[in-house]
């Protein structure tokens, strides 16, 4: 186990070139989450269009893991139908709590698989989950899907 397994190329790329990092024009729900031990911050905004697709924007500052995770999340779930987005979030949360024992499914998680190494560093799991918690909370506030409140905690 070494840092290179933690900081995979995909993570570094998302950290340096974040996707979806902008406020949402007509947000229906917003959630600000902070990791009080290290000060990572992220605000996620969500909206749903007429076709039932989810739209996501975010702002944030923090470590590479939290910010790359936000970028991966925004890129992946943008435009997804709500139930698929929820499934992706579930899979990501499960991966983070797996202690490295779960083989991530790239079909479901896309770039999210790069976070597999994070699960072995307990102090960093919170960083990776932060934007996903914000997403869930923002959806709940907007009344968009997710019957699984609180699970990402």
């Amino acid at each position: 186990m070494n840092v290179e397994s933690l900081y995979q190329e995909i993570i570094l790329d998302h950290y340096k070139n974040p996707r979806g990092k902008h406020p949402l024009a007509e947000a229906e729900g917003e959630s600000y989450q902070v990791n009080p031990t290290c000060g990572d911050e992220v605000t996620v905004q969500v909206a749903r269009d007429r076709d039932g697709h989810l739209h996501v924007g975010y702002e944030g500052q923090g470590c590479s893991i939290s910010q790359a995770s936000a970028s991966v999340m925004a890129e992946m779930v943008e435009g997804m139908d709500v139930s698929t987005a929820d499934a992706v979030r579930h899979a990501f949360v499960e991966l983070m709590h797996s202690k490295g024992a779960v083989e991530p499914d790239e079909e479901v998680l896309g770039d999210g698989v790069a976070f597999v190494g994070v699960a072995k560093y307990p102090a960093r799991i919170k960083c990776a989950l932060l934007p996903w918690m914000a997403l869930q909370d923002a959806q709940v506030k907007a009344g968009i899907g997710t019957e699984d409140q609180g699970e990402a905690r």
Partner: peptide
């Protein structure tokens, strides 16, 4: 970010 410095 300090977290990344600390990790290294």
């Amino acid at each position: 970010h300090p977290h990344d410095v600390g990790q290294f």
